[in-house]
Design a protein around this nucleic acid. Structure first.
Length: 271
DNA sequence: ATGCGGACCTGTTAGC
DNA sequence: TGCTAACAGGTCCGCA
């Protein structure tokens, strides 16, 4: 479900309800996410004021004065603000209830997500410490990405999907950005010119910004924090468009598996 | 040091 | 209509 734009949409949707609020209670119905939810987590967070809800890559950071909890939506997770009388469903694994009885409910059918404690220095948590720059941060420049590719023999698509190089770019937007940059996803990262890498950086930033503006991409059942679907799907140029016409040149979009992920591209437009 | 395949799960859809 | 297989937005980990 979520890549950076979807996580950011979720964050923006729920943070007005959470920031500055006091956590009255946390209810955990199923601890077995990707890693078990720590047994003390709800106790640690109880009665704490939520200072902020931030994002690092695809991780949501729930900051309180005693420390920060990490939430990840995995492949199929979502968080929604729900009405008090809405009965929890099968995959509603935990929820945060504020002193004003606002309920932020976490749902994740595949349970690839997580809810963990990161203490007072979340940036040092093992899940966060090796993360590369944020793509929408000024540190993510063409010079940076160019240098990161030198000597690398991996395909460029894998390179930009590797969170050590840059965070938040998942399968949808990797495909999309490479299409707009005119780069074959399979091209060896270390053999792409600085000029083309620069174009890629511009397109990554553009596609992420646009997707955030549209409220994320809704495939299957994704919903943002306010329960609304995203509207970016209709903009997708290549993702899930196998055998459909390329939007630039009319040849047919190809699908190929690269590093176990579906990869969509136009043979004519991407070299 | 880097790169890969496997693993963790459930749900939906395409194909027979 | 029903069964089976393939596939799905992520990413850590162990092994080569």
């Amino acid at each position: 479900m979520p890549e950076l734009p979807e996580v950011e949409t979720t964050r923006r949707g729920i943070s007005p309800y959470l920031e500055g609020s006091k956590i009255k209670k946390i209810i955990i119905r199923n601890r077995s996410l990707r890693w078990p939810i720590p047994s003390e987590l709800e106790k640690k967070l109880q009665n704490q004021i939520i200072i902020s809800l931030n994002r690092r890559g695809k991780y949501l950071l729930l900051e309180t004065s005693v420390g920060t909890a990490i939430i990840h939506l995995g492949m199929s997770g979502s968080i929604r603000i729900v009405d008090n009388d809405l009965i929890p469903e099968k995959h509603d694994h935990f929820e945060i209830i504020t002193s004003k009885n606002i309920i932020a409910r976490y749902n994740d059918p595949r349970r690839f997500g997580c809810f963990l404690w990161a203490g007072k220095k979340p940036e040092n948590h093992p899940l966060l410490i090796n993360l590369g720059p944020e793509p929408l941060d000024s540190k993510f420049t063409s010079n940076y990405l160019y240098k990161s590719t030198r000597g690398k023999r991996t395909p460029i698509k894998q390179h930009i999907m590797n969170s050590r190089n840059v965070v938040g770019i998942g399968n949808i937007y990797a495909n999309e950005a490479l299409f707009y940059a005119g780069i074959d996803p399979n091209r060896i990262a270390g053999r792409i010119s600085e000029k083309r890498i620069s174009k890629l950086v511009d397109e990554i930033i553009a596609v992420l910004k646009k997707a955030i503006k549209e409220g994320g991409t809704t495939l299957r059942n994704y919903r943002g924090g306010n329960g609304m679907p995203g509207y970016f799907k209709q903009e997708l140029a290549v993702y899930e468009r196998e055998n459909l016409k390329c939007k630039k040149c009319d040849s047919l979009i190809k699908r190929r598996v690269l590093a176990q992920r579906s990869t969509y591209f136009c043979r004519t437009c991407q070299k």
